[in-house]
Design a protein around this nucleic acid. Structure first.
Ligand SMILES: [Mn+2]
Ligand SMILES: [Mn+2]
Ligand SMILES: [Zn+2]
Ligand SMILES: [Zn+2]
Lengths: 149, 149
DNA sequence: TTGCAAATAAGAACAATTATCATTCGTATA
DNA sequence: TATACGAATGATAATTGTTCTTATTTGCAA
């Protein structure tokens, strides 16, 4: 199980639900999880947490900088561990798998565009929705594509 | 009022609610409107439409290619007239005003990245959230910044 | 005009998320 | 270690944005 210090240093008191949620993100196969994903995975592994607590904890972790929240299409928020380094996302329309990428040229151009328009960037999101080029999509069908549920 | 032909050629029968909604997009000060924006503006201009009809018509217009739907942060869908040319968006965090831009370098790089990862892009969204550099934000405070309501 | 499929309006239903509140827990202190 | 109290939890109600249902109305072709 995860160490309580990680939570303490984030200003959060070390409770069982928080440790379980953090643990799930550290050990889950998929990096990007919705509140329902977290809730169901905890239930199915025998843990007993309330859905409201999951939502609360995810928001707290986001505010503490432990998690990052994304708004992909499909209506629900998706979270991932904060690696400290920004990256953008490409979402497979066939299986919902999320691939990550970072392109310095894109990042630089955004700054340029914003500056020219008289803005200072605080945040941005670049989501690419795409089909896998391979005949059979190799990504695991762990989650439905956004907008498909 | 708008001409019925515009709807007819889109395969939609020319009804009063549809003409009113299309009219609103043609004449509204803000290009980007949510379902609630449309509903309230129609009500306040004396028109009598149902909210469900607004949602239905917006979706139909999107499918007919008359409108484009965006998912900015803040939970609600936002629509704009389809100009036929793709563009990305920069949202002012101080007033919610939406500025549009198009950058060929960014678009090209996205293709490159996707191809390298084995994907064919079907769609994408690039949203920049930024502060206006001017002392006093010059944009009209017509809508609250996303996530602020 | 009339006829009828298509469209509307009102409200119920839904899904994701947040708020409320009585109970339980974590931890600082005696 | 026992106690005490504010913080956290879980059950459930409430909210929000959106879609569905259905009885009624409307556009338009014959
Ligand atoms: Mn980026
Ligand atoms: Mn673009
Ligand atoms: Zn990611
Ligand atoms: Zn636009």
């Amino acid at each position: 199980m995860h160490q309580p210090e990680h939570l303490k240093s984030a200003g959060l008191k070390s409770t069982l639900p928080r440790l379980k949620v953090l643990d799930l993100f550290e050990n889950s196969k998929e990096r990007h999880l919705s509140a329902e994903d977290v809730y169901k995975q905890l239930l199915s592994s025998g843990e007993d947490v309330g859905l409201a607590t999951v939502y609360r904890v995810l928001t707290q972790f986001e505010q503490a900088g432990l998690l990052v929240r994304h708004h992909f299409e499909g209506g629900k928020s998706v979270f991932e561990l904060n690696k400290g380094e920004h990256h953008d996302h490409i979402v497979c329309l066939q299986c919902g798998h999320v691939e990550e990428f970072y392109d310095t040229a894109i990042e630089a151009r955004q700054e340029k565009v914003a500056t020219e328009l008289g803005f200072t960037i605080r945040d941005h999101s670049l989501h690419i929705y795409a089909d896998c080029t391979k005949k059979k999509c190799p990504h695991k069908r762990l989650r439905m594509p956004p907008g498909t549920h």
